[in-house]
Write a protein that binds this DNA or RNA. Structure first.
Lengths: 347, 347
DNA sequence: GTGAAAGCGCTAACAC
DNA sequence: GTGTTAGCGCTTTCAC
């Protein structure tokens, strides 16, 4: 279909060999200034661009980095992706985004496809289904640079970038407690995800600090991280139908928070009159909600940036890196009306 | 870094030539059933996967399709992308997503990069800055299959998939009129985008039908399609500060709609008490807003699916396609409280 | 039915 | 300073 210009065309036109042209183009010091100029000008004139596929085949690298997230239709991840691109773009890397839709199988396929396409490194946030890490471990052991962000893998030793989930959850829960609420439900994702564990601990710690016993009935897991609205709705129903029903729910995920509000609205439960809500979300619209939603917001853009910087550093390191680091960034608590239990909303 | 298994390894291990192995793997009919079985089983056993880069270099195609959108952090586009992936994945294509952030330069870079990476085709929604189409025209003339969706290019003849923007805008505007409002502002994107033009025409047609003269003061363009909140805020300010200020605003874009609500909230203007709002958006949260937002919703997922089917059909067509089609899908109007001018909101 | 060899676009070791 | 050649992994003539 295309007849792109190759180094051969230049060589032929200028009566040179392909290697001379190649060297001239990449500024090899052995080439005379004259020839160099000739080649460069001609290449410019006919708008020559090297074929990156040929380069990848030769160099076994592609100047691109692969990203694995569950969904781009998620405020946290779309913001993180923007952070990733802002760095990658300036450093000459292209970004390939793939979605797992919270499916382990999809994650494996995506990771393998990107590896076989010679991505230079991977930025990974695990799917909510992922427990077996061998697909990543294998590549990592072979030397493929991987940086985890958000949902990280404990058993793979590499750089990781996360929000301070423990503190974010602690702050939100304590805020609810300080508003006079003692019965606080917790709606969260699959039990084995790093973020789930950390946020649960923060929640428990806040309860403990204020001498509130942890009530296992108040803990609800949605294994699909809010992707399946029915799952969320059932979890919410369970909570509000408890004999000793909670006065607030602390929600531990972006999709879960919005899903929870939609479920409550559908069930006719008024927020925060009947139940108060505070949740993790990076939605820009939390303040537009009815009622405006109390949120824990993560520095998603920054997390994306830092993870990308770390990855590029790994990629470009001349020596195998053995010292790894886990960067933790603070979340921010935005207190809005949704957490004021018992108060009706009037605009 | 990697030492992936190649066809050579199999050949060596089995005492065959690489060409025999290659033929056996792709089921060449000249190969004896015996050899074929031998090769296939061994390949399976050592987990052989052909190197897609080598294939791309040879075949000049990559089994991947490139997507150009302004932003993934946009409900419409993230849903469209899910539609795209749902088809591409099943047909054996991988999807490469790029964002323009509404920048023409970024669009050119992204398109060229994907072309040089031998994407088999392109799914394009133009950036709000794009007026010059030569970067796409060039590739299209060379035979690269391109399908436009959402923001389409009039001057490039190919398949296109769009929502019925005219009717969507007409319906929303007429709904406002039928609610008793005659002074309706219109907040929209750059004047040259296809969606802007179509939605403006729908808006004007509804006014005309009800004998309301078009007032140029009521028309506000945000050239960055809602990406820059200040731009939105200024446009909103302009409208509410008019001596004969509108009683409603019909907003013609996803980011614009939410941006407009945020601006009004910041300016202390109550919706719909002081001003009614109806807008294009694919947000799943429109019903959670305060007040719940009257929206025109596009079948984004379906649009993504159809565009992808059309593109794959172009890619796989044996003969050059000369008959092109523009598919138009209906929007849906969701009437909620935000369009009830003069009514205060009580939850 | 199978193997040898060329070639996709490029780079680099090795001539001269 | 420049040309020749081999090779990245694969497919595909062309021989036999």
């Amino acid at each position: 279909m295309f007849e792109p210009i190759t180094i051969k065309d230049i060589a032929k036109a200028l009566g040179l060999s392909t290697s001379t042209v190649s060297r001239a183009l990449r500024g090899g010091y052995e080439i005379s200034a004259e020839t160099k100029k000739l080649v460069l000008e001609y290449a410019e004139k006919i708008n020559y661009h090297p074929n990156p596929i040929a380069l990848s085949l030769k160099e076994r690298r592609s100047h691109s980095i692969g990203v694995v997230v569950c969904e781009v239709a998620n405020n946290y991840f779309s913001q993180a992706i923007n952070g990733i691109e802002s760095i990658a773009y300036n450093r000459g890397y292209h970004v390939i985004i793939t979605q797992t839709h919270e499916s382990y199988d999809r994650e494996v396929v995506n990771v393998q496809h990107m590896a076989s396409r010679s991505v230079d490194g991977l930025l990974v946030s695990l799917s909510s289904e992922t427990q077996d890490l061998s697909h990543l471990k294998y590549l990592h052991d072979k030397g493929l640079p991987i940086v985890f962000f958000d949902r990280v893998a404990a058993e793979i030793e590499t750089h990781k970038v996360v929000a301070n989930n423990y503190k974010g959850a602690f702050d939100a829960t304590e805020h609810l407690i300080q508003s006079g609420i003692r019965k606080i439900g917790h709606l969260t994702s699959s039990w084995y995800l790093s973020i789930t564990i950390e946020r649960l601990e923060g929640y428990k710690a806040a309860l403990a600090k204020h001498n509130i016993p942890f009530n296992a009935d108040y803990l609800q897991h949605c294994d699909h991280g809010g992707m399946i609205q029915d799952e969320v709705e059932n979890a919410v129903k369970h909570l509000i139908n408890l004999p000793d029903k909670p006065e607030a729910i602390f929600v531990a995920g972006d999709r879960l928070s919005t899903g929870c509000l939609i479920a409550l609205k559908k069930l006719g439960v008024k927020v925060p009159l009947d139940i108060a809500i505070a949740g993790f979300t990076n939605s820009d619209f939390a303040e537009l909600f009815s009622p405006p939603l109390t949120t824990v917001r993560q520095p998603a853009f920054k997390i994306g940036q830092i993870a990308t910087e770390m990855l590029i550093q790994l990629i470009e390191s001349k020596y195998p890196v053995t010292e790894f680091e886990t960067k933790m960034l603070d979340t921010e608590l935005f207190i809005r009306e949704s957490s004021e239990f018992g108060v009706p909303i009037v605009q």
